[in-house]
């Protein structure tokens, strides 16, 4: 701990968020909702309605998995739109790999 005191740089990368307020809000809502609806147990801690032979509690959590995958894929696509207009040349050829 002998380093000289240095003022940390001020965060300045907020302009992308400011430039796309709706997309940024959508991303935030999707992430928060994805966490909330899994954590708020009273919402789904019920035996009924049964889906097939599955009590609702178990069905809900099992179906939540692929739903999360879809939500996060949308988040990923939205985040790409936040990028500056010209994405790095390498990032498209990346898809094939």
């Amino acid at each position: 701990m002998t380093q000289p005191a240095v003022q940390p740089g001020k965060p300045g990368a907020r302009n992308r968020v400011a430039a796309h307020p709706y997309i940024s809000a959508a991303i935030t809502i999707l992430i928060v909702a994805d966490i909330f609806f899994a954590l708020y147990v009273p919402l789904y801690a019920r035996a009924t309605p049964k889906v097939g032979d599955f009590p609702f509690f178990y069905f809900y959590l099992l179906i939540y998995m692929p739903a999360t995958g879809i939500v996060l894929w949308i988040v990923y696509l939205l985040q790409r739109r936040l990028l500056p207009a010209a994405p790095a040349a390498g990032s498209t050829s990346e898809e094939a790999r």
């Binding site: 099992l62 998995m65 999360t68 995958g69 996060l72 988040v75 990923y76 990032s91 990346e94």
Partner: peptide, 23 residues
């Protein structure tokens, strides 16, 4: 992993693995 995108994509592809965990 190679690129930043690789992680983001995997965060949405890995739940496919988790379906298995449920069962």
């Amino acid at each position: 992993t190679r690129r930043r995108d690789v992680i983001k994509r995997n965060m949405s592809l890995l739940p496919l693995y988790s379906i298995m965990l449920g069962f």
